[in-house]
Each structure stands twice: as C-alpha cells, then as structure tokens.
C-alpha cells in the first residue's frame, strides 16, 4: 500500500520555486531516503508534508486521505512525525518532558480534570510516565532523562528529537539529516536505532547527506535537484544515474568520475 503519496507538490517563496511538481510515493514498512544537493528542497518537502508550509499547488495523501491543507497539529494525529534539521527541542525542559510532549495527542486530560486531579487524570499520568520511560529506554537515554535538553551534547539532542517523534506513535517518521554533526560512534548507534525503529513497523523517510548511511539503510531513494525529482530507485540504480552525478558534481565533475 502507498503510505504517503505526494502529487505535483509545489511551493514557491516569492520568485523561488523551492519544491516543484514533486511526486513521491512511500511504501509501508520501507526506509526511503530523500537526497540532493544543498538547497534542493528536501527540508521544504518535509515542511510541506507536515503542514509547516502550505503548498501553492499539488497535494499530499496519507493512507489514501488528502492531508495537505490540514493544520500541523492534526497532521501529526494522522500518524506522521518528524525531526528537525536544526534541532528544535524545548531547551528549558528535561529529556523526559520533551518526550512527554510527544505523548500529547495520546492523552486526554482536560482542564477540569487536571484542576480537581481526578482519578482518570492520575491514571493517565501514571500511564504516560511509564510509556515515556519505555521510549527513553528504547532510544537509550535513561541516564540523562532528567537533564534539561539545552545542556545536552549535540548527538544526544538528536536522539531526544527522535524519541519525541516516536512518542507520537507515528506510522511514518520523517528524519531530517539525523546524522548531521554526529561522530562516527554516534552515527553507528543512530543506524542501529533507525533499524530498530523500522523493525517496530514504522516507515521512515530520511534526508541524508552521508551516502554510506543511505546505502546501508535505504530501500528506495529519491533524488531532488532545484526542487524537482530527477531520479528514484534503489541506491545502486541511483549511483549509476548520470543525472544524479551531474546534480552533485556538475557536468564536468560527472565526466571526471566516470573516466
């Protein structure tokens, strides 16, 4: 089944068409990668899918239902979660609370219940606590659960973002350059984590510049250049594709590499 499908997805900022007629289809259970040179529109594509930008044309369908145009807080309820290229954690909150924020859509306590501290609210809080703890264990942050996230090293912050996204219990997880800024050890751990997440049945769309990482993980790769999709296929197909080489290296560079 097509889990995610974008049709002719387009957005422009002033004169700049950042994403131009993009058609993507993501199959359930896969890890897909979205690659392309800097400024080619990868992040913008994710922003369109998650409702941060409104497309100027085209649409996004998720499980056969059109979701483009929905406000962002409803899109996540449909089962799409994401991380950010420039980490955006709530810095004054602990790791625990950042992940608890991800649970928001799965909790119901309303103002009245909270104020009278009703039994339902107390039970829900206990349940949330153990679920958050479970996620913290799953992503391996138990030791620093009570640290404020702004005090954490970069690599840990990236993991907290993934944990927070997982807490929304997504079917589709969008990761925007999760390995950026990580050292080798951290990158290896990240790869393992991403596989573990896939094994939980969560589909992943991944933006990444590290080609080894893409090669090791991705079942299917989309290549963007100047906002347009120039190729898709398995990593092997993509590696051999002339257009892709040109996009990354320029015409000249492509010729050199081929020679």
């Amino acid at each position: 089944m097509d889990l995610l499908k974008t049709t002719n997805l387009t957005v422009s900022f002033g004169g700049l068409v950042a994403v131009n007629g993009l058609n993507l289809t993501v199959q359930k259970g896969q890890i897909c990668a979205l690659i392309g040179p800097n400024g080619s529109g990868k992040t913008t594509a994710i922003n369109l899918i998650t409702g941060i930008y409104v497309p100027t044309a085209g649409k996004v369908e998720f499980k056969g239902e059109t979701i483009s145009g929905l406000p962002r807080h409803l899109i996540v309820r449909k089962g799409i979660a994401r991380t950010f290229q420039n980490i955006r954690l709530i810095g004054n909150q602990t790791v625990f609370d950042n992940i608890r924020l991800g649970m928001h859509i799965h909790t119901k306590a309303n103002l009245l219940g909270v104020i009278v501290n009703s039994r339902a609210v107390r039970e829900e809080m206990a349940a949330v606590k153990s679920e958050v703890q479970e996620i913290i264990d799953f992503v391996g942050l138990s030791k620093i659960a009570q640290e404020k996230t702004r005090n954490l090293p970069y690599g840990k912050q990236r993991i907290v973002e993934i944990g927070r996204a997982l807490a929304t219990k997504p079917e589709l997880l969008l990761l925007d350059e999760p390995a950026a800024g990580l050292n080798t050890q951290e990158t290896l751990e990240l790869v393992e984590l991403i596989k573990k997440i896939r094994d939980r049945g969560i589909t992943i769309l991944l933006i990444e510049h590290h080609m080894e990482l893409v090669e090791g993980l991705a079942d299917w790769v989309f290549v963007l250049n100047y906002g347009q999709k120039i190729a898709e296929g398995t990593f092997k197909d993509i590696k051999a594709n002339e257009l892709v080489k040109e996009a990354y290296l320029g015409k000249r560079g492509a010729r050199v590499v081929n020679a």
């Binding site: 709530i90 909270v114 809080m125 949330v128």
Partner: peptide, 22 residues
C-alpha cells in the same frame, strides 16, 4: 499536567509545539 507542558512549550517554540500535535 499535559496542558501545562503544552503551554510551557508554546512559550519556547510554538512551531514545534504545533508539530507535536498541540
């Protein structure tokens, strides 16, 4: 509560808080 957490998060980063479903 979850409401308080949502409010505190809005103060720091409303965009992300929205993306988290608030």
């Amino acid at each position: 509560s979850r409401i308080g957490l949502a409010l505190l998060s809005i103060k720091e980063d409303p965009l992300v808080t929205g993306v988290m479903g608030v």
